[in-house]
């Protein structure tokens, strides 16, 4: 038990240490931003500090937190739907080559349609509601999850399945302990990607469908040509995405894919 805790702590420290690199990258971004601000002036690119100030005042106002929460909720709801349906159909396609052959061309068509077109269609189907946002996310984020799940299952090491069968694992046990575990490797990066797509599409759909949330607030800022306000909302939306990704997806991935660290030369050896 203490070993596990120590391991967790080591991983957390390791992660925080790697945060320095992230901090350096952020500092670089702010330096470029500041330079852009000084070149083009306040109207095109406001002062980064002023933007951070605007972000802060948005963050502490309960009204805007409500908007952010609404968008995050919609994004997460759409993401959950997309992750679930993509994984389920993908796993089926991974086992059944016939389903895969059917799904491939469909996928090409679905992926070929720009998300914005889906927003227009779903708006006409569902009106300006949360359902429009959820449906658009579902359509845009499902394919990546589907492809990853299908690849993960189709490219599984069948030898491990045979081994499990020797040791009396039934079909369900093999699926749970062997196949699903192998599919996790491509699935997690795809889930992170789908989550990002969910947030982006949520904001976009809200803006176009005038469905409130961060998208609605962005539309208002645009109408009033309030660039700092618009940027502040963007920063908030990015922060929300990062919080969800590093609070939900990455820890799960670290838990399940932790063994890969052992393969790294600098991996912590017990």
């Amino acid at each position: 038990m203490t070993r596990i805790l120590a391991d967790r702590a080591a991983r957390l420290l390791d992660f925080l240490w790697s945060g320095w690199a992230g901090l350096a990258a952020l500092a670089l971004l702010f330096a470029c931003w500041q330079a852009g601000h000084e070149t083009w002036g306040d109207f095109i690119l406001p002062d980064p500090l002023a933007t951070l100030g605007a972000t802060w005042s948005l963050a502490i106002s309960s009204e805007s937190r409500g908007l952010l929460l609404l968008t995050a909720q919609r994004a997460l709801a759409g993401f959950t739907l997309a992750a679930f349906s993509g994984a389920v159909i993908g796993i089926i396609a991974g086992y059944a080559p016939a389903v895969m052959r059917l799904a491939r061309p469909l996928l090409t068509v679905v992926l070929g349609v720009p998300p914005i077109a889906w927003i227009v269609l779903t708006m006409m189907w569902f009106g300006t509601s949360g359902a429009t946002v959820a449906a658009t996310i579902l359509i845009s984020a499902t394919p990546v999850v589907f492809v990853a799940a299908a690849e993960g299952i189709a490219s599984r090491d069948r030898g491990l399945g045979t081994m499990a069968e020797v040791f009396r694992y039934g079909a369900l046990g093999r699926f749970w302990f062997i196949d699903l575990r192998q599919a996790a490797a491509p699935l997690f990066p795809a889930l992170a990607l789908a989550l990002g797509t969910s947030f982006k599409v949520a904001v976009m759909a809200e803006m176009l469908a005038n469905a409130g949330g961060v998208g609605g607030a962005l539309a208002r800022a645009r109408a009033m040509l309030d660039v700092p306000q618009a940027l502040a909302w963007v920063v908030l939306a990015v922060i929300a995405l990062v919080v969800v990704e590093y609070g939900l997806i990455r820890p799960m991935q670290a838990e399940i894919e932790g063994w890969r660290r052992a393969a790294q030369p600098w991996g912590v050896k017990k």
């Binding site: 030898g159 491990l160 081994m163 499990a164 020797v166 040791f167």
Partner: peptide, 21 residues
């Protein structure tokens, strides 16, 4: 039990967990 040409170990499990599998 069976022993194959390749070890067929679960890469995500330690040696002890593999034996325990």
């Amino acid at each position: 039990a069976m022993i194959f040409q390749e070890p067929r170990l679960l890469p995500w499990a330690t040696a002890a967990q593999n034996i325990g599998f």
